[in-house]
Design a protein around this nucleic acid. Sequence first.
RNA 1: GGCCCCAUCGUCUAGAGGCCUAGGACACCACUCUUUCAAGGUGGCGGCCCGGGUUCGAAUCCCGGUGGGGUCACCA
Length: 492
Amino acid sequence: MVDERVRVRFAPSPTGYLHIGGARTALFNWLFARHHGGAFILRIEDTDRERSTEASARAITDTLRWLGLDWDEGPEKGGPVGPYFQSERLDLYRREAQRLLEADRAYPCYCTVEELEERRQEARNRGLPPRYDGRCRHLTEAERRRLESDGRRPALRIKAPETGQTVVQDLIRGTVVFENEKTLDDFVIMKSDGWPTYNFACAVDDAHMRISHVIRAEEHLSNTPKQMILCEALGYAVPRFAHVPMILAPDRSKLSKRHGAVAVEEFREAGYLPEAIINYLALLGWSPGDDREIMPVHEVISLFSLDRVNKTAAIYAVEKLKWVNGVYIRVADLDRLVDLLIPRLQRAGYLPAPVDAPTRERVRQILAVGRERARTLGEMPELFSYFFVEPAGYDEKGMRKYFNPETAEILSQAREVLAGVEPFVPETIETAYRALAERLGIPAAQVIHPTRLALTGRTVGPGLFDIILLLGRETVLARLSRAIDFIRANRG
RNA sequence: GGCCCCAUCGUCUAGAGGCCUAGGACACCACUCUUUCAAGGUGGCGGCCCGGGUUCGAAUCCCGGUGGGGUCACCA
C-alpha cells in the first residue's frame, strides 16, 4: 500500500549524541515511512544556540546513516520544503510570529528571565502550579514604549485559551483530553533574542513541511496541546500524533549516562552490528504479533504498524541486545566481519598497519572457527589474542588440572607427533593425536586439554585441531616446548 | 504539588471476554551433543499490582486505590 501523503520526520536537537531512545524514535518514523512508501524527513532543531553544535549534528547524521536509517529530505540532501536546519528558517518563524501579533493572538512580554524564575519559585513555595500570570497581556502602548526604552527586549507570548479543552487524538494512546485552564498558559513562542522556542518552531515546521504524522517520544505528549493551539491560531491543519513509549533505564528512571552505554555510537564502538541494533530496537515497544524475534529489516518494514506499538515504557537491558548481536555475528558475511575486525586487531597491536593477503585470509579463518563464541566484535581481539601473540600465562585452574609431570611427558610425545605429521591439516592431526592417545592407553581428552592450555594459555576455545592449523607447525612446536619447560620448572 | 500517560515472568513481549492449566524470547538452572567453551537440542524456574464491580464467564470491560513514568523553562 502506498500512501504518498505519508510524511514523517525525526527532529533531533544537536546537543549530544544519538542515544538509544532517539534512535528508536527515528526507527519507528523510518519504518512507518518505508511501510507506507512515504517520506522520512530529518530536521535539525538547533534553536538552542547555547547547546547546539555542528559536531553533534554531524555525529547524529553519521549514526543514523550507519544504522541504515536513510532520509529522503534533510541535511546534505535538501528537499522541497527546506532548509532543514531550524537555524536557517528564522525568517519563517519571524513572519509567522508577526502574523500572530497582527492578529492579536500574541503579545510582547517584557518580564525578565530572573523575574519569571522568582515568581515561579514563589508559586511553588505556596504549592501553586507555576504558570505565567499574563501580566504583560494588557500593557498599553505607552507602557510598552517605556519598557522598551528601559532597554528591555520583549519575548513573544501566545494568547492561550483560558477555558475549554484541547483533545489529542493519539494513534497510540487514543483520546487524551487536556483542560486548557489547567494545562495552558501564555507560553513564549519567540525568545527575546529573536529565536523561536521549541513548540513554536516545531508547530510551524511540521505544518510547512507538510508532516502528516508526528511520531515522537511520550515525553512530548504534554506539549501537544500547545502545538495544537498554535496550529489553530496560525490556521494550520493539525497533523496526526503518535506518542511512543519511553525507554527507561533498569532502575526505571530516565536513561542517562550513569546507566552505562546509551549512545548508539558507544554500541558501535563496542562492536555491535547495525542490523542487530535495529532488530533489537524494533522489538522494544513493537512486536510482529507472533513469536518471531530475529527479523531482517525488510520484514519489519512490511509488518510495521503504529497500532501494534504498545503503550508501556520499556526498560532497556543490554543482555538481549547482546544475544541478538551474537545471532547476527554468526550469520554475517565473513569478509565484512574481517573488514570490521582488522582495525580492532591493529589497535590491539596484534596486526601491522598494512595487512597483506595471507594475513587477511588467516583472520578470515580465525573468524570462521571463532565467531560463534563472541557476541560482539569488541570481545574478539581478547578472545583471539593467542592467535597473534604468545599466551601471557596459563589459566590457573587449567594448570592445576592439566599441568603435571605426567602431562609434560604426554605433551612431549604430542610434540613429536606434531613435528612429523603430514600433511599438516586438521584431519591428519586429529588422526595422529587419537592414535597417540591409544598408544598411551588414555582418552584423547587427556592429550587434547593439556595441549590447548599449552598453546593458548586457556581451557576454552575453538576445536583444538583448528587452533593447531591456524597457529602453524612452527608456533605449535615452540609453544609446546615452552609449556613443557614451564611444567618441569614449576610443577615438577 | 497540578496535569497527563502507563501497569502480564527479573527484562522484552503475545494476549483485543471463553482458544489461558497465561504462549514466546533474553537471562538463570539442569540435562544432552561434545576434546573444552560456544552454538544447537530438551526440560525447569518464573508473571496477569491490589480491591471492588459488569458478566454464565475476566489478564482482557468499568470504577477506585497503589505503584511507576512523563510534564509543568525565553531547553528541546
